[in-house]
């Protein structure tokens, strides 16, 4: 059933990573991404691999979930690798007609492949161990300084969490309208692409009307429950750094220092 759809790809488990503050995890992901671009030699990548493997082990999420995210970027990965191999000038290894594979090309291709793969796996660790709501809360708090330059941080995060709450409801509604329209003879299956798109109209119009009606009702319900923006608002579950988070920041700082040291030393 549509209502069982889980959003994002949160994998519930009881691990240290799950317990970390979402802000720590956001910072950690940033540090890891930076490090992947700082490292550019084999020993460097070994350090990154070690770090990533340790994180996967700590997260208690089955490894196959980590690699699921890679499926989406397989095409991009292939194109990057192939183009890097044949378009980088340098010492020619193979030659096939006008295509030349160079030593520098192969090196660059491998490097890019490692970087892209690690980027995806690194961010998967975050989304697998953090619920969408925690992520929203984390972003709100982490971005709060932007309030000073009049970015409506609270409003954006409120919209995100309401959207998350209503996605399953609207999916269910789509299902209902679809069945109602099929019962009235609508056809969503046959025809070419243009016809199919046209056939969506009797689905989309009622869906939009209902979404607007819901938005109106919800706004009224929020007002009735004293919602008046982010000012003077307290939180039921405020984000607080715990001992875990301080330890995690320590590890991240050490890791970043290693990455910078490697770059400076040119290893």
């Amino acid at each position: 059933m549509l209502r069982d759809i889980t959003l994002g790809q949160y994998y519930p488990a009881n691990s240290v990573l799950h317990k970390l503050d979402p802000r720590t995890k956001l910072a950690g992901t940033m540090v890891f991404i930076i490090s992947v671009f700082l490292f550019h030699t084999l020993p460097g990548y070994a350090v990154a691999t070690l770090f990533l493997a340790a994180m996967i082990a700590v997260s208690k999420v089955p490894v196959k979930f980590m690699f699921k995210g890679l499926k989406a970027i397989v095409m991009i990965l292939m194109i990057t690798v192939v183009f890097n191999m044949i378009l980088t000038p340098g010492e020619v290894l193979w030659k096939l007609g006008f295509l030349k594979v160079t030593r520098e090309g192969v090196q660059l291709a491998v490097r890019m492949a490692i970087r892209l793969t690690y980027l995806v796996i690194g961010s998967s660790i975050m989304t697998l161990t953090t619920t969408p709501n925690q992520l929203t809360d984390g972003l709100e708090k982490a971005l709060r300084p932007l309030n000073k330059i009049h970015v409506p941080v609270h409003e954006i995060s409120m919209m995100m969490s309401i959207a998350l709450r209503f996605i399953p409801i609207l999916l269910e509604e789509t299902d209902k309208i679809m069945k109602a329209q099929i019962a009235r003879g609508a056809d969503f299956e046959n025809g070419n692409l243009i016809q199919k798109a046209k056939n969506m109209v009797p689905l989309l119009v009622p869906l939009f009307i209902s979404a607007f009606r819901r938005a109106n009702d919800l706004a009224m319900a929020m007002e009735a429950r004293c919602y008046h923006g982010g000012e003077d608002r307290t939180q039921m579950k405020p984000l607080k750094y715990a001992a875990w988070d301080r330890a995690a920041y320590g590890i991240l700082a050490a890791y970043l220092a290693v990455a910078i040291a490697f770059r400076v030393a040119g290893i």
């Binding site: 429950r225 004293c226 008046h228 307290t234 939180q235 039921m236 579950k237 405020p238």
Partner: peptide
Amino acid sequence: GFGPENMGVPT
């Protein structure tokens, strides 16, 4: 908890 949050009740 949404209502009390809006009213500024302590956590």
